[in-house]
């Protein structure tokens, strides 16, 4: 069983974002980067599939990005990936989802992967496009927003999340692209011995230019903070004073306190 996991490194979403000088993306300086949350579930599911097969699987963890992306790949290897693939691109945000997907498909095309896991979306761009596009480019089936995954031989039984708590249950044969929703599993924390072992694992480095992918289909005009509209009262300061103020408000607004 050959498994590919596609991951991305994103800024901590608690950060304060500033627009860069080009006006089309956030300023990366001063931001702390981490593994995209959805992708943690993708790595975990790949490792669980391998464990379920008694280790008879090979997991490649791929990321496109600048040098810092190697940290995310190493985390994937420490969680149980076998090999890292770093496709170096210093300004990956200048590529649209179509180009990112084309890069991944160009890498994956002759590798005979049976399963490709990735996150439902990235936390920074959030387009939710790359997984589906990779599937289409490779001619694989694809199921998105997956919250349950079981493999029986070459057939996967999948639960996907729909609106309002409803789930859809589908069955389909490999090869397959799965995009992982939060809650699919409980991603493990890499242990110290596994972090050490990950340093010895194979890491292949390519340049994005090694895979010609053509022009982007979407142009970014600008990035900007949302317009502050309808903003209410903002209370700041001493905790006890804040509590006095809010208690007075709640005594009016909560029927039980009136």
């Amino acid at each position: 069983m050959k498994i590919l996991v596609c991951i991305k490194q994103v800024p901590d979403m608690e950060s304060r974002f500033r627009v860069n000088s080009a006006g089309t993306w956030y300023e990366e300086q001063d931001l702390a980067f981490r593994l995209n949350e959805y992708d943690e579930y993708a790595i975990e599911q790949a490792v669980r599939v391998k464990e379920g097969l008694g280790g008879a699987a090979d997991i490649t963890v791929l990321s496109i990005g600048p040098d810092r992306a190697v940290e995310a790949i190493k985390k994937g290897l420490a969680m149980g990936g076998d090999r890292g693939v770093h496709i170096k691109a210093d300004q990956p945000h200048q590529m649209d989802a179509w180009q990112i997907a084309s890069l991944i498909a160009a890498f994956a095309r002759d590798k005979n992967f049976d399963l490709i896991f990735t996150g439902l979306q990235s936390q920074d761009r959030g387009s939710g496009q790359v997984g589906g596009m990779v599937a289409e480019l490779l001619g694989f089936a694809c199921v998105t927003t997956v919250v349950g995954f079981e493999l029986n031989g070459a057939v996967a039984a999948i639960r996907r999340e729909m609106e309002g708590g409803l789930r859809g249950v589908v069955r389909l044969a490999l090869p397959l692209v799965v995009t992982c929703q939060l809650g699919l599993n409980t991603p493990r924390y890499p242990t110290l011995p596994n972090i050490m072992k990950a340093k010895q694992k194979e890491l292949l480095t390519f340049q994005a230019a090694d895979f010609p992918v053509g022009d982007s289909l979407v142009q970014t005009e600008k990035m900007y903070p949302p317009e502050k509209k309808g903003r209410g009262l903002v209370l700041e300061g001493d905790v006890n004073e804040l509590a006095d103020k809010l208690a007075a408000i709640l005594k009016e607004k909560a029927p039980a306190l009136r």
Partner: peptide, 14 residues
């Protein structure tokens, strides 16, 4: 929206 709705992007199909 971008960055968990903290930012916006303006996009144009080519």
């Amino acid at each position: 929206p971008a960055c968990n709705a903290k930012m916006r992007r303006l996009l144009k199909p080519v």
